[in-house]
Simulated assay, not measured.
Amino acid sequence: MVLDDADDLAPLMGGKKKVPAQEVREPLVVRYYEEGLARFEHFWATGQGRFKDGDLHVYSMLCNNLAIKYRFMDRYDEAADLHHKGLGSSPFAEHHNGLLWCAVGKDDDAQTVVEAERLWHFAQEHGYSRHEPTRYFSTVALSLYKLNRDDEISIWMERLDQWFHDLDEDEQRDVRRNYLASLMSMLDFFSSTRPELVLPRLRMHQQEVIALQDCYPLRRLACALEAYPELLEESVALHKQANSYLDKDDDEDERRMSQSGIERAERKLAERDAQSGAAASGRKPWWKFW
């Protein structure tokens, strides 16, 4: 769809300056996608139209493209219906990816895990050149955490390691930062219930994460350390170090979460010290001199 790409439109309209803004083009793109979909379905219902209107793979691609537009409009149920139509006509991985993000958009944690499972297995069995587990594994871990299914996070960490291991050396170098960021996020969610399994992996990667000088992965490592009362001083220090790495590429959400992470870790440290002080004073009442 040429309307969807400013670079494609520019030569047809006499230069980039004459290309309408995205917000102007977007309703037209959606309209033509919808009309294209209607033509395909009319052909199948009546047998009338051009023979290309019966191309199942093109129809499936059109379902995917329109579903993407609907997702950005928060029309998640309609988008999911289109992805299912696409899977029924010519299945490919982008539909499973789309169904995952429909579930995420609807805050449906159980369905998020279901769709992530389907995407992972489809990619393993049929291939998916644009498969990026680092884009969704931490979201799956969050859903499992919210569902009180924390132990299943270990399955997804194994899959993350498997995916990374299967890449060649150049690919591993290219995605190393994203791999570490995703792993730190998953370890953070896992640390509240299985701290004994998490700490060795945190220590294994800690220096490499620090060397990235990147707020997000170091912040998530610091968050994970909050699960260990004896390591709260270190957690506070790493939260502050992560905050110092914020740059122009970090959005307001990351800045807000970094600051709230510092405040939360400092509060936990103060509460721990207050409890320790109370326990110590309880062992020796004020009126005892021996």
Score class of each variant (00 low, 15 high):
Tyr33Pro: 03
Asp74Tyr: 11
Gly88Tyr: 09
Glu26Lys: 13
Val24Glu: 14
His96Asp: 03
Asp55Thr: 03
Cys63Ile: 02
His96Pro: 07
Lys18Trp: 13
Ala67Gly: 14
Gly49Ile: 09
Ser60Gly: 12
Arg50Asp: 13
Leu56Trp: 08
Glu41Ala: 01
Tyr128Gln: 07
Gln124Asn: 09
Tyr70Leu: 15
Ala21Cys: 03
Tyr76Asn: 11
Pro11Ile: 13
Gly98Leu: 05
Gln22Val: 12
Asn97Gly: 11
His96Ile: 01
Glu94Met: 12
Lys106Met: 12
His95Glu: 03
Lys52Met: 08
His121Cys: 01
Thr112Lys: 09
Gly54Ser: 10
Lys16Arg: 15
Leu62Glu: 04
Arg39Phe: 01
Met61Ile: 04
His83Gln: 08
Ala110Lys: 15
Gly88Asn: 09
Glu35Trp: 06
Val19His: 12
Ala80Val: 08
Pro20Glu: 11
Glu125Trp: 00
Phe51Glu: 15
Asp81Trp: 11
Ser60Pro: 10
Tyr76Phe: 15
Gln111Phe: 05
Arg75Thr: 08
Glu26Tyr: 10
Phe122Asp: 04
Gly36Glu: 05
Leu37Arg: 10
Glu34Pro: 02
Gly54Trp: 07
Ala80Ile: 04
Leu82Asp: 08
Val30Cys: 07
Ile68Val: 14
His84Leu: 12
Pro91Tyr: 03
Leu62Lys: 03
Arg25His: 01
Asp77Thr: 14
Leu37Asn: 00
His96Leu: 09
Pro20Trp: 08
Trp120Ile: 10
Leu12Gln: 13
